[in-house]
Design a protein around this nucleic acid. Structure first.
Lengths: 282, 282
DNA sequence: CAAGAAAGTTTCAGATCTGATCCTGAAAGT
DNA sequence: ACTTTCAGGATCAGATCTGAAACTTTCTTG
């Protein structure tokens, strides 16, 4: 039979509102089912313990006790091997397992980010003349994504690498008044290190987004934001980096305020103007 | 004020079960609100017309009539009003708020996805000759990301649009034995619709990743995977789409099995061979 | 304009949900 | 052995939800 998370996912649509509150609470931290009593889970979810009891019976367990025992069992059996090589033998990662892993990535990441780190990065980016987004190799899509957000807020965002242009030539125009967003999740290349080093040398602010595995690069970055990327399946997850980028850019937009707002409106206006024409691929 | 779909998404979590049935029905085909009467919408959703009436008042309209008028207007007016406009007054979104929103996006999205939909998509992609990844505009980074995952698993992944090449010429080589991954989160362009239509016409399988607000495109896609994208801050969140893509590609890798494993090993080997040289930007 | 039909609204009673309260039993301490 | 404590379960009354039906408004048609 399924484990707790899977059972929840299966009947989620049928749940009432209070039950859904329970469900959400549990899905955010499935391990708690084994650790906490049904009563305290109820408190956590902000529902009565009667609802909690009903909830577990709804999931198909005989009662809360049984559910808890089951949760304990699936935690013991659930020790995951990290490498994709090992993950391959696995029959199939369930949706619930994937969800649990992703939520953990997000939670751990966001929780551990220090808001004063973020603030100082935001300040630097708000004041920056130009912004450089750097992402080689597998970080390139991430860089593209970051740029797409930033360009809605500030006018001069440059990407490295770009097209097939030589990096040093492009990068030569970096100034101390600039800010750099360096993306180094997963495989980090020498070029990334080089660009970051040159940026610091030029006096620019460098915000470095990376994973937990990366060694601490004290001087290489002004601010380092670490993301958890452990995936349940064959691949690592970039959900946390994406989320951090979104939050960062969103906060940046709010911080910049009026000018960003005007810019967003202007963009929206151009969009609707162009929408009247046929080829609207932009 | 927001249009119907947007209002629904805003209060979706608060809805009762019957109301949610209404909500889901409408989100699948928002245009129907303008076309059909509230009564027939109710029938379609399998609820009473009393519920339908209440539902529209719940959304903030004076009544069903007003809602319908509003729906008509926003169809004429086309594009929905961008989210950020409303969100901007907000003082500042806290990290906790951001986290909560993201987790909800993930949870709701994964829960909602039917595993047999996913399975049939995976089957099609596993057997496909070539795979096309389509993402215009703001979906381009997402497409890039999807391609980066897929190329690790299968050899022939093509992107649309690419470089500055003309889309039709590139796309001419699509076959019935191919599979298409269409990304339409947020602003959907005409070109996307065109590509999807041509794909179906050519007999290829089309998996469509989009948001809750998109109307159901019955014939346009073989499988539609809807993601929740409501952001706490200034921008919508693509965390759910990214997560779905990751899960999809991961499951695909497991499904393909041995050949994918070999491919991953081969790639890893090339990486380490090249790492010995200096310029390792790939 | 009157009559009728269709859509929308309100009412109301039954169904369902939900928290407070009380009860039972097990475990731990005295 | 007795008390205490706490998790889980049962009960019940009040809150909420929901569909049927009565009622009102709007539109259509002759």
């Amino acid at each position: 039979m399924h484990d707790v998370s899977q059972r929840i996912v299966d009947i989620y649509d049928e749940l009432t509102r209070s039950e859904r509150r329970m469900a959400d609470t549990i899905l955010q931290a499935p391990d708690l089912v084994a650790e906490l009593s049904a009563t305290s889970l109820a408190t956590r979810a902000g529902v009565s313990k009667a609802t909690a009891a009903r909830f577990f019976r709804r999931l198909g367990y005989a009662g809360a006790r049984v559910a808890r025992a089951d949760a304990k069992r699936s935690i013991d059996g659930g020790g995951r091997e990290p490498e994709w090589r090992a993950r391959f033998g696995t029959p199939r990662v369930s949706q619930a397992q994937h969800l649990t892993a992703e939520v953990q990535n997000l939670t751990r990441t966001i929780e551990q980010i220090r808001s004063d780190d973020l603030d100082s990065a935001i300040r630097a980016f708000a004041l920056a003349d130009k912004i450089w987004v750097v992402g080689f190799g597998e970080n390139y899509p991430l860089a593209h994504f970051a740029r797409a957000l930033l360009i809605r807020v500030k006018p001069d965002i440059r990407m490295i690498p770009i097209g097939g242009f030589s990096v040093p030539e492009e990068f030569a125009s970096i100034r101390a008044s600039d800010a750099v967003l360096a993306l180094g999740v997963g495989r980090r290349t020498k070029s990334l290190r080089s660009v970051m080093a040159s940026s610091r040398k030029a006096g620019a602010h460098v915000t470095f987004i990376t994973d937990q595995i990366a060694p601490v690069a004290e001087d290489a970055a002004s601010v380092t934001l670490r993301c958890r990327t452990k995936g349940a399946g064959a691949f690592d997850s970039v959900v946390a980096p994406v989320s951090v980028l979104t939050y960062f850019c969103s906060s940046l937009a709010l911080r910049i305020g009026e000018p960003a707002l005007e810019r967003l409106e202007y963009i929206s206006q151009i969009h609707s103007e162009w929408a009247e024409l046929s080829g609207d691929d932009f």
